[in-house]
Design a protein around this nucleic acid. Structure first.
Lengths: 111, 111
DNA sequence: ATTATAAATCGCAATATTACGATATAAAAA
DNA sequence: TTTTTATATCGTAATATTGCGATTTATAAT
């Protein structure tokens, strides 16, 4: 017993939770904001920016990549990470769809 | 060693990751959508809707409550759960602020 | 060829999450 | 008062996440 029952939920709900999971750690949010602001794409610069070891940052980058939110391109010894524009927009749409589903009604049962 | 270094990140990044964590499981997304659509506020109805045991659903509800996204009000034996409108909007704004931080530029280092 | 540099992966320990049955709690109905 | 009903909490097991040092991999520089 324990963790895992994702198959039992809709594709849509799994999709949102996948993106949310990627954002569910402040380090990953920090990475994404860093990349958004285009301070740099270089992996090394991200490592310097964060209070975490190189290996830990590398893992966070891997998770963001697996979630689709970023992509990495090798440039010689270094790696350049960037926001994956397409998925980025898709994720934003996902979240907004969820949030906009809620319409404030006065006949709310609990006030 | 292991998990936990949240203090080292900004309040802003922790805030986003807190909301994201709440959305990081399909069951919780499903609960939120159910409540958004106002099919019902009753806890029992949520339990019936999901492929999870009563105790598991109760835990998910607790997490959503702790994240601030919902609130529960006891009505006799039953409990009525609702979207917490104020935090709901705050969360949406949080996500959108993050997402809108990214401006697509042509001078993107990695294409 | 050797060395230096950047990043990924491995192995491990600490902690957190997920899930459930059993039990506790508390209000409503009998 | 006893019983029923609805929800929360506890205990526990399985699994996932977080984090780091050490190592590996791969390119660049010497």
């Amino acid at each position: 017993m324990g963790a895992g029952k994702h198959e039992e939920f809709s594709v849509k709900h799994n999709r949102i939770s996948k993106y949310a999971k990627a954002l569910a750690h402040p380090a990953r949010v920090a990475i994404l904001q860093f990349l958004s602001k285009k301070k740099s794409c270089m992996c090394g610069d991200i490592v310097e920016e964060l209070p975490l070891s190189q290996s830990t940052v590398s893992q966070h980058l891997k998770e963001l990549k697996e979630a689709g939110l970023i992509k990495g391109e090798t440039e010689g010894v270094k790696v350049c990470y960037c926001i994956n524009e397409k998925e980025w927009k898709a994720a934003q749409l996902c979240f907004n769809t969820l949030f906009n589903n809620y319409k404030e009604t006065l006949e709310n049962c609990c006030l």
